[in-house]
């Protein structure tokens, strides 16, 4: 498909959508707002870091995060809470309780979805399968094929979550496990190309399923010097993805990064460091009478 043809189709979608919605949209010009909250690489930091920790003394903790999330849910109309993997491993809580406590706290906090990070396999695939079964939220893994593994049919390739009258499509991208996770721990998993999978599913979610927003929760890592697939690379080579929330590289982004995708549209990338010392937050405002193929965000001053 030539570049100009692609642009034509995009304009068409935009225009036809607004044509259909215009008569009512003029009278009710109400904005739709979505508040995205996200964590990554919490690494079993159930309690706040000890006071004498040089970097994060007395920061973090699940109970405080729960309080903050509750406060935001009380004031914002549509809140979605997501985790980008490496929930497990890093404090003795994981060694002693195998991630059971982490999953039950995330369920109590009403996480909407999470994806699997490489450290989720640290007690083996069977243990992870038990935790995934216990979780009261879905694990979205789009590019791992778990056929013949203990995780087979326990995760979702994508998920559609409704918040108010907003339809949010979720894709989950996992990192290549070979050379990173002991093969005896993760078992039989096929890693598929995250960019191909993400684009195929994002198109389905945005175009076929008419999602207002498509969010990718990723454990690929923010950016690499090498040619390893990263969130920035996925964003650059993507279509139909609005937001990429990341993990793995423990990156604290002072503000989200905006990357231009294949169609010169902006993609928002964010990552909230690690250890649960930060809660990532992105607020999106969409005009009610617009149902565009891709959101054209502008930074709110």
């Amino acid at each position: 498909m030539s570049h100009s043809r692609r642009n034509f189709v995009k304009t068409l979608t935009l225009a036809s959508a607004s044509a259909a919605l215009l008569p009512t949209a003029c009278s009710s010009n109400k904005d739709k707002k979505l508040t995205i909250l996200h964590t990554n690489d919490v690494h079993s930091h159930i309690d706040p870091f000890p006071a004498n920790d040089k970097k994060f003394g007395n920061k973090g903790g699940y109970a405080r995060r729960a309080a903050l999330v509750k406060k935001i849910r009380a004031t914002e109309p549509n809140v979605i809470l997501l985790d980008c993997g490496d929930i497990f491993q890093g404090t003795p809580y994981f060694n002693v309780f195998d991630g059971k406590l982490d999953i039950s706290l995330m369920s109590k906090m009403k996480y909407d979805a999470a994806t699997i990070g490489n450290h989720e396999f640290d007690s083996g695939a069977e243990n992870l399968a038990e935790r995934v079964k216990e979780a009261q939220f879905p694990f979205v893994c789009s590019n791992y094929d778990f056929t013949n593994s203990p995780l087979e049919s326990l995760t979702k390739p994508y998920e559609i979550i409704k918040k108010g009258d907003l339809k949010i499509g979720i894709i989950g991208l996992g990192i290549k496990l070979q050379g990173l996770v002991d093969p005896r721990m993760c078992g039989n998993i096929t890693y598929n190309n995250p960019i191909e999978v993400a684009n195929r599913l994002a198109k389905k979610l945005k175009v076929d399923d008419q999602c207002d927003v498509v969010i990718c929760i990723s454990h690929l890592g923010y950016k690499y010097e090498s040619d390893k697939v990263s969130d920035v690379e996925v964003a650059t080579k993507s279509e139909n993805i609005d937001v990429i929330l990341g993990g793995h590289t423990h990156t604290f982004l002072d503000e989200p990064t905006i990357v231009t995708n294949l169609n010169q549209e902006p993609v928002i990338i964010n990552q909230a460091g690690w250890g649960g010392v930060k809660l990532g937050r992105i607020d999106l405002t969409m005009h009610a009478h617009k149902k565009s193929k891709t959101l054209a965000y502008h930074k709110m001053v």
Binding site: N29, K59, R64, I268, L279, Y297
Partner: peptide, 21 residues
């Protein structure tokens, strides 16, 4: 009405100013 849509983003600190649930 501009079809500009807005976003804002931040990392919120989880520290001792928050009373745990």
């Amino acid at each position: 009405i501009s079809h500009k849509q807005h976003y804002s983003g931040q990392l919120m600190s989880i520290d001792s100013t928050i009373t745990g649930n």
